[in-house]
Computed example of a mutant assay.
Amino acid sequence: MAFDQSGGFSRGTAARLRCADGTRAFAKAVTRGGDPYTVALAEREAAVAGALTPGLGLPAPAFRGSVESAGWFVLLFEDVEGDMAKVPWRPAELALVQRSLVTLAERATPSPLPGLPVWGGELEEWHGWNRLLADADPLRDVDSWTSRNAVRLAEAEAGFPAATAGDTLLHSDLRSDNILLNGGQVTFVDWAWAARGQAWLDPMIFALCAAVQGHPDPEAVFAAHPSARAAEPAEVDSALAALAGRFVVAARQPVEWETAPVRAFQKAEAATAIAWLRVRTGWR
Rank of each mutant, 00 (worst) to 15 (best):
V142C: 04
A60T: 03
G82D: 06
G33L: 04
R64S: 10
V118C: 07
V48H: 09
A25H: 12
V97R: 00
R64D: 14
L153G: 06
R131D: 13
G50C: 07
K28H: 07
P59G: 02
V67F: 12
N130L: 14
R140Y: 02
K86S: 13
R90C: 05
E43P: 03
W72I: 10
V151G: 10
L139Y: 00
S144A: 15
D79T: 06
E81L: 09
E45I: 05
P54A: 03
S147N: 01
A27T: 06
D137V: 08
L139V: 03
L153T: 03
R90E: 12
V97C: 07
P54L: 00
R24G: 15
G22S: 03
G71C: 07
R107L: 11
M84R: 12
A70Y: 10
V30A: 09
G82L: 04
F73E: 02
P59C: 03
N130D: 15
A105E: 13
R148W: 09
G55Y: 07
A108L: 06
G57A: 00
L133T: 04
R64K: 09
E106L: 11
E81S: 13
D135N: 11
V87A: 08
G50M: 05
D143L: 08
P59F: 10
P117G: 02
A150S: 13
L133A: 08
V30P: 12
F26P: 00
R32K: 13
S69F: 12
P91Q: 05
S69L: 13
L76D: 03
S147L: 13
A62S: 11
Y37W: 13
A29Q: 15
L104H: 10
G82T: 05
S147R: 15
W119A: 14
G128P: 03
A62E: 10
N130F: 08
V142F: 04
A108S: 13
L75P: 12
D143P: 05
P138H: 05
V48M: 04
A25Q: 12
A46D: 07
G65C: 10
P61M: 00
E78F: 02
A42H: 08
G82K: 08
V74L: 15
R131I: 01
P138Q: 04
G57D: 01
T23H: 08
P110F: 02
D141K: 01
T38C: 11
E122I: 07
V39S: 01
P110D: 06
T31Y: 11
P114W: 08
V87G: 01
L113D: 03
R131S: 12
P88Q: 04
A40N: 13
E125P: 04
N130T: 15
D135E: 12
T38G: 13
A27D: 02
A62W: 06
D79R: 05
T103Q: 14
P59S: 05
D35C: 10
A27P: 02
A27S: 14
L113S: 00
